[in-house]
């Protein structure tokens, strides 16, 4: 599979897919998308890159071990639920704030961080599995 064309285009394709996956994740609250889909897209990006160029390049590009990424996502999701405890509300009650950054109102909320956590878990776990299998 390591044809020259594929190998050359794969990094750009993968970068594009990851960009798209982030976009899909962040729009998920209002339009089709979300952490699960985004994570799957990102995982397939890394998988494709691995098939095209070789697993070691993917590992280098990722820098962190994919399982660490997944674990970080899990922690992020769990901690985003803890925030509500400080407001004396039950675990995982969503908290919202609408600050204005550079003249644009941005919605920042705990469900967003939760969804980013989901994204990282799905991306990390599935990338880990896929890379393992590609190595075998």
């Amino acid at each position: 599979m390591q044809t020259l064309i594929f190998r050359t285009t794969a990094p750009f394709l993968a970068a594009l897919m990851i960009l798209f996956s982030i976009f899909v994740t962040l729009r998920g609250h209002n339009d089709p998308g979300g952490g699960f889909i985004g994570g799957l897209i990102a995982a397939s990006a890394f998988m494709m890159y691995g098939i095209a160029a070789g697993v070691q390049y993917v590992r280098r590009a990722l820098y962190f071990h994919p399982i660490s990424v997944a674990a970080f996502g899990l922690v992020l999701s769990a901690t985003s639920g803890i925030l509500s405890l400080f407001e004396a509300q039950p675990f995982m009650t969503s908290q919202w704030t609408f600050p204005t950054i550079m003249g644009v109102e941005v919605a920042i909320s705990t469900p967003m961080f939760f969804d980013i956590g989901v994204y990282l878990v799905v991306m990390g776990s599935l990338t880990s599995i896929a890379l393992k299998l590609e190595e075998e």
Partner: peptide
């Protein structure tokens, strides 16, 4: 109450 228009996603994350 959950400020989300994608109901499926709101159910999942909220």
């Amino acid at each position: 109450i959950a400020h989300g228009r994608n109901i499926v996603n709101v159910i999942i994350v909220d």
